[in-house]
């Protein structure tokens, strides 16, 4: 897996330095993305649902209520749900980015301006990513709550947030890659949500335990293989406060791979 990761990062780097990279272009596209996101009512609805989902699961999930647990650590409550919610939220955030360019025909306009495809892809990715960042900031109310009620260890919470950002970033990149292939937002969401969920499930403890307990060599090998592509082991470590280089590397390579695929698909689609 790490070989694929290194390969993906190298490919994206090659695409980035394949010509002069104009930060000004990425910035212009990024600003447009963010602006267009916040002019649409859909954005506020999505954000609202995201915040309701995070808070409801954290405080109300039967048997896992944060307040009744009398714990101030967020790992088993708040962060426990993050990858699952993000698997839905990130594709919904990113679905419009490229699908809209094709639907409106603006891809023809932007492609005939002096912008490199990779600049377009990076600008789009960062645009969705910053919205995700803002959404996560709003969930800090939970952090404030536990800080008032108890005395949490802030280190793991910060690391947990970092993990959420990386998981969200990876999911956004997946959705953007899917949206490069299809013109339809519905298809983009219908394909990328299952992919993101799959990236969660294959590394989820019950699934991993099933493979590990099977005692069959082939199955436990499959389990390890699945764990290495899943976001779960990495995210769980982050939410415990452990930041490991190999997991940072994992997220960066997933994002790099997806952005590289997007770049390639967009370029080949035009011919």
């Amino acid at each position: 897996m790490s070989v694929i990761g290194i390969f993906a990062i190298l490919l994206l780097t090659a695409a980035l330095i394949g010509g002069p990279l104009l930060i000004a272009n990425i910035r212009a596209i990024f600003y447009r993305e963010v602006n267009s996101f916040f002019t649409s009512p859909l954005a506020y609805v999505l954000m609202f649902i995201f915040l309701v989902a995070v808070n409801a699961l954290t405080f109300l999930w039967p048997g896992r209520e944060l307040v009744e647990s009398e714990q101030a650590a967020l790992k088993d409550f708040f962060f426990f749900y993050h990858p699952w919610i993000l698997a839905f939220y990130a594709p919904l955030l990113a679905m419009r980015t490229l699908a809209d360019e094709h639907r409106q025909g603006t891809i023809e306009l932007i492609s005939t301006m002096p912008v490199r495809t990779i600049e377009l892809v990076c600008g789009k990715f960062l645009g969705s990513f910053i919205v995700l960042f803002a959404s996560l900031l709003f969930t800090a109310s939970v952090w404030i709550t536990v800080s008032i009620l108890g005395d949490p260890d802030h280190g793991p919470i910060i690391a947990g947030y970092l993990g959420s950002l990386f998981v969200g970033g990876a999911f956004i990149a997946v959705a953007i890659a899917v949206s490069a292939v299809t013109r339809s937002q519905v298809i983009c969401v219908a394909v990328s949500i299952p992919i993101c969920l799959l990236l969660c499930i294959v590394g989820f403890d019950p699934v991993q335990n099933f493979f590990a307990d099977s005692g069959v060599g082939f199955l436990s090998f499959t389990g390890e293989l699945l764990a290495s592509i899943s976001v779960m082991p990495a995210f769980v470590d982050f939410s415990k406060g452990l930041i490991e280089i190999r997991y940072l590397f994992y997220f960066v390579s997933v994002i790099a791979l997806c952005l590289f695929i997007t770049n390639t698909v967009l370029q080949s689609k035009r011919s």
Binding site: N25, R27, A28, Y31, T39, G105, E108, L109
Partner: peptide
């Protein structure tokens, strides 16, 4: 300078916002 056949535009922007965006891309 190119005017495509269907005159595609970013629907969610204002005229000024759209032109400012294009100007930024044009350097």
């Amino acid at each position: 300078g190119y005017l495509p056949e269907s005159a595609p535009l970013y629907e969610d922007m204002t005229v000024a916002g759209f032109l400012r965006f294009c100007a930024s891309i044009r350097g």
